[in-house]
Amino acid sequence: MIAVTGATGNIGSTLVRTLADAGEQVVALSRGERPVTLPEGVVHRRTDIGDPDALAAAVAGARALFLLITGPQLTEGPAPSELLEAVAAQGVRRVVFVSSQGAVTRPGSAGYARTLDIEKALAASDLEWTVLRPSGFASNTYAWIEPIRGDHPVTAPFADVPLPTVDPADIAAVAAVALREDGHHAQTYTLTGPELITPRTQVRHLAEALGHPIPFREVSREEAYINMIRFMPAPVADHTLDILGSPVPAEQQITPDIEAVLGRPPRSYREWAERNATAFRTPITPALQA
Rank of each mutant, 00 (worst) to 15 (best):
L122G: 00
R270E: 05
I243P: 03
P247E: 00
V177K: 10
T130H: 01
P164N: 00
L65V: 06
V174A: 04
T5R: 09
D182T: 09
A7C: 10
L84H: 05
A279Q: 12
T8P: 03
R275M: 09
E33I: 15
P286C: 06
T255R: 04
V43L: 12
D257P: 04
L288E: 11
A207I: 03
A138E: 07
A103T: 06
P107A: 05
D126L: 14
R94C: 03
A172L: 05
S13N: 01
I2H: 04
K120T: 12
V177W: 06
L19W: 04
S81C: 00
R180P: 03
I214Y: 09
R93T: 14
T8A: 03
A176F: 11
S30V: 00
A79L: 02
D151Y: 12
P247W: 00
G193A: 11
T70W: 10
A64S: 11
R264G: 12
A143E: 08
G77R: 01
I284P: 01
T192E: 01
V92H: 03
E85S: 10
T285H: 10
F137E: 06
R204M: 10
G193D: 05
G61W: 00
P266G: 15
R46H: 11
T141C: 14
D51F: 03
A60H: 14
T240D: 10
I254G: 00
P233K: 01
S135W: 07
A234F: 10
G9P: 07
A79Q: 03
H205G: 09
T190W: 06
T192N: 01
A124V: 09
T141Y: 13
P283D: 08
I229C: 02
I69K: 04
A209L: 02
Q90I: 01
